[in-house]
Design a binder for these strands. Sequence first.
DNA 1: CTGCTTTCGCTACAGGTCGTAGCGTAACTG
DNA 2: CAGTTACGCTACGACCTGTAGCGAAAGCAG
Lengths: 216, 216
Amino acid sequence: MPAAQPSVRPDDAVRDGAVRAKGRPRSAAADLAILDATREALAELGWGGLTMGHVATRAGVAKTTLYRRWPSKNELVVDAVASLFDDLVMPDLGSLRADIEAVVGQFADLLARPETQAALLALFAEGTRDPQLRRRIREAIVDPQKRLVRQGRAAAQARGELEADTDTASAREEVDIIFDTIAGTVEHRVLVSGEPITPAWTRRFIDLLLGPLVIG
Amino acid sequence: MPAAQPSVRPDDAVRDGAVRAKGRPRSAAADLAILDATREALAELGWGGLTMGHVATRAGVAKTTLYRRWPSKNELVVDAVASLFDDLVMPDLGSLRADIEAVVGQFADLLARPETQAALLALFAEGTRDPQLRRRIREAIVDPQKRLVRQGRAAAQARGELEADTDTASAREEVDIIFDTIAGTVEHRVLVSGEPITPAWTRRFIDLLLGPLVIG
DNA sequence: CTGCTTTCGCTACAGGTCGTAGCGTAACTG
DNA sequence: CAGTTACGCTACGACCTGTAGCGAAAGCAG
């Protein structure tokens, strides 16, 4: 998990850890404590109840320390939540259907966690008003997961379940569409409709998807 | 547009307009002014910038008047946004593909409006923490649009493009899945990925969907 | 026209959050 | 050792929330 430096330091050139900073170094333990406290507070109080002051107290840190690293709640929560998505993996179970089923199941479990529920849609909502935040969300949370689609497609193509790509531009669009479809649908089902993701639902959903894509 | 009475009156039995209230009646003009002001403020300031005090001032109304009718920002925005969704229609253009294309286009236009963008995800986010609000969102915004799926399916079945339903329970699940898929995907594309809905994208998306569903 | 009732706009208020500033102290470098 | 930066603490003005109290306005029943 790369977890893009929270750093809001004046000399942002210090990034790669190569150059040494001059004065007292930032406490790495504080970073962890803050992110943990943020996730806990999200789970308990939700997005609306999450307060910078509360997080600071809970992390055993001064509020000013918090603001030195993250300019606002939005950025803080992006970093706090991003790592949760890194656990998703594409398993390669021998068939495209089984692979999709497995990933949908993992995603459903992730969306069932209170931290994720409290944070995800709220972040997306803030992102619609702040292009920079949206970019950060995409870079930290959304886009990294597209690897799952790429891996699953590659495996299916190797098995002969899917046609090989003609050109890379088209393939990238295809990945984007598939990703928006699976992520969007599961999110809508869980977070908007408020219904659980059952194995039966997953089966029917995949029935809807698998058709023109599959060769045999 | 039914637009479920905002009413928070003590005697909520006055609903159907049959029974007359006793004292000075609520100003209907104030309701309209408030909802308009809410939509305008949403478009200009976004969800985070929307303030009860601001809306009241903009509507030429006292803040207390606002609180007499809507208990909080959430409920106010639900009512303000719900009516925007009533314009969606299922056209019946002679083919399932054309019908879906048309509805996706309408939905995309709706999601392109700043009021909708500012409000929708924020409401969904609040709904994950407040079951009552989620119910209200579903009743006022989400569920009414499922008629589009039902109408489109019925038309396609009449044309012979889709198989007839076997049992009603299964049909309802099917409608739910299709709805979550189309709504979720388009929302994710526009509001999360931040990419526009082009005709080319719509075509490829429908390619993905139409397959096992269509008979011929 | 006269009560009765309810809404209206206005003002004021306590409670909470935000984000910043100033201070003295702690930690690390040369 | 001096220099630099992060730290915790306190205090602060600005803002938003949601409620209360007031006198005036707008309907209805008699």
